[in-house]
Design a protein around this nucleic acid. Sequence first.
RNA 1: GGGCGAGUGGCGGAAUUGGUAUACGCGAUGGACUUAAAAUCCAUUGGUCUUAAAGCCUUGAGGGUUCGAGUCCCUCCUCGCCCACCA
Length: 823
Amino acid sequence: MKRYNPKDIETKWQKVWQEDKIYQAIDFAEKKKFVMLTEFPYPSGSGIHIGHTREYTIGDILARYKRMNGYNVLFPMGFDAFGLPTENYAIKNKVSPIKATDDNVAIFETQLKSLGLSIDWQRTFKTSDPSYYKWTQWLFLRFFKAGLVYQDETFINWCPFCKTGLANEEVINGRHERCDTLVEKKLLKQWIMRITDYADRLIEGLKTVDYPSKIADQQINWIGRSNGAQIKFNVSGSDKIIEVFSTRIDTIYSAACLILAPEHPMIKDIVNPKHKQTVNDYINSVKLKSEIDRQNIDKDRTGVFSGAYAINPINSKLIPIWIADFVLVNYGTGAVFGDIHDERDATFLKTHNIDATVSVVPKDQQLRDKVVSMTDIYTEDGYLINSERFDGLTSAKAREEILEYLVSKGQAQKKVNYRLRDWIFSRQHYWGEPIPIIHCPEHGAVAVPDEDLPVELPPVDKYEPTDNGQSPLSLIDSFVNTKCPICQQPAKRETDTMPNWAGSSWYYLRYFDAHNDLSFADKDKLDYWQNVDLYLGGMEHTTLHLLYSRFWHQFLYDQKMVPTPEPYQARRGQGIILGPDGLKMSKSKGNVVNPSDIIESGYGADSLRLAIAFIAPYDLTTPWNPEILGGTYRYLNRVWVLVDQIILRDSNQSVSEQEDKNIKQIMANLINKVGNDIELMNFNTAIAALMETLNGFYKIFNDVAINFNKDIWLDAISQYIKLLAIFAPHISEEIWRQKLNNKDSVHLSTWPVFNKNLLSTDNITIIAQVNGKMRATFILPTGTGQEEITKLVLNDQRVAKFIDQKSIKKTIFVKDKIINFVV
RNA sequence: GGGCGAGUGGCGGAAUUGGUAUACGCGAUGGACUUAAAAUCCAUUGGUCUUAAAGCCUUGAGGGUUCGAGUCCCUCCUCGCCCACCA
């Protein structure tokens, strides 16, 4: 008998599927729609990796399952083509980024197709296609016109290696997440998106969608909403006011000083001339420090006295104003009041010998003595002391009353602060969407008229970023010099480009209407397809792409341009597949597993897909085991061989009702189990059930005592192949059409149905316990009563000997499960 | 420091949510087939005592609740991921 050889069948069926267009999603079809979205890949030069394979295999299994269950499924694929790696690749290999992208996309398409994914390829695009980024630019201009984009000269995160500005989200531990270079602060004029305007909406919206708490919590923490008060401190002998944000206004009586960030704009106005030199020296020394040094929590708390004093609005006490670099300029107001009830402040006060008083103490007397004598720093909520008429209040109550009092005096207001920063949207690079703005000396920043979009990327000789912090586009006069759309006078184009997160912020909408030249997507098509029903992607995008695209979508909803307030109804994040050594795969460690190599090595795509779905729950980070492929290949081969054996076996004996029922029962249970597991995304146990059932089939098939009826077996194996088809589409199609002689594709067939009555079995295993310890099992008819079982069990030696002479104190009986005697 | 999660055989992992712990697969050992190897098939495979039957022990450690705990509660230990001077 011929062995199963994937090479004979996989590319053959891939071609047939493509020609027959069996995976096409149909706009406005009567069937219920299901949008299965997986994050589109960045087409890098190294081709698809095992992470892509896991994500798309899982998406494909679900897409196929939904399709067979009668849904009009949209399972699309595109390419997130703009970005630094392609630009770097182009520079290094001296090819144009357009050519590099085209080449890489071609490789990606071939590799993705070799996995047998049921993608509707008619809807594909690249974010670097002018026909696509025309709409990215158009959407940007909606933000611009709504006042949600602004230009500001600000200290931004600057990567000196990539020579570009970065969003806060792209900086990890003070380093650029892509190249690991230490990030610097640089003062640059930047385009910025007001994502903070949507901070509350981004939190609220999470309640209406189905995200795992892991993802929702991470977004909520990232947004970092905190309730507090903004308090005004007048500067003594000056008309200046310094505002301070605090969540602990209950500790205001212990405010020992004000501390300003070195970048605080008011320093120059308040500094005492006698201290000017030391203050300037300090600020300059901070500038020389790297971000990493500044963010080192364990370092000394440096700072200088400004010579000025502020007036505590609660009691008019004079407190010194200091400058210290542990205060961050871009959170809150860039100034804090320093007090003993915050660990950082307390260290600072101690280091610089600033007098401190305690104003909040714990209820417990012993703890209180410790705090009052200041041998311990108390940062929790407690009861107020040394706080005049607020003494004795709880912290929570005091926050209310002190705030109310200061508000009435006009010295404070209620304030919500966010850790989320506005989104730096400028990049000083070539390979991105040009920002469609024209700078006119007369009219300032003017939007490029819609009819002039797209602003196409001009060809350049050099893609290298410039040293002066401007994009290479600034060197092309024919691009830069233009006319103001308002006054027709000479004007200059914006030369910054958008970050690579721009194109991916709305790409899912484009799949609904991929080739529309009149709008980013037709309204009726949006109405039909929105929302994305399930979005699968990497956990690493939770605070980047996932947050950005929710922001864009919420804005588009406000503009009445999309029908739903949230883009993704459900989100799931897949785990990382590590190298066989348990470490993250990387070229330098030499532990990279290449999916294309596996397919070509002879195992084929089906074995690979099964291995990936079987190795662990999809959301678990787990090491790759190359040996598992042997297991999944052997399994598929055993399916292949059993089908052949059934077909070749030349007898159609009459079978008993029970024998008929047994097979049907096995299949009913399997269909039920696989269906339930897929709904819960338990792919590994679904495959285990398929394997287990196959083993069972072999046992029955080879049992000479059991009569063989070919019709019954062919029926069962046909159902079995349908279940297998979502995991291993090629071998299933080959068996379905070539061995079982079906005309149409198994992938157009419907998911098998089963008789629910068959799920309840006639006989069931009852566990007999003595004192909770299992002593024997009995196979009995379902529903056997307690009396009957008791009699049977007590007469059984295996149980009886543990009861012996002892008396039975209690009997616990759970129908169809256990009987337990307590002696 | 904050948030989230996890500890089950040699390994990846199951366990219908409190009811036979170790499903399924890998690996290993023995056997069949073969001149031989590969492939395939069959058997065994948590530990321990034992010729065997039978028993005892076992889900990171310790305690608790319960007739019964991998699952629930408390204490502790270890590991992973994300964030981190956020006032």
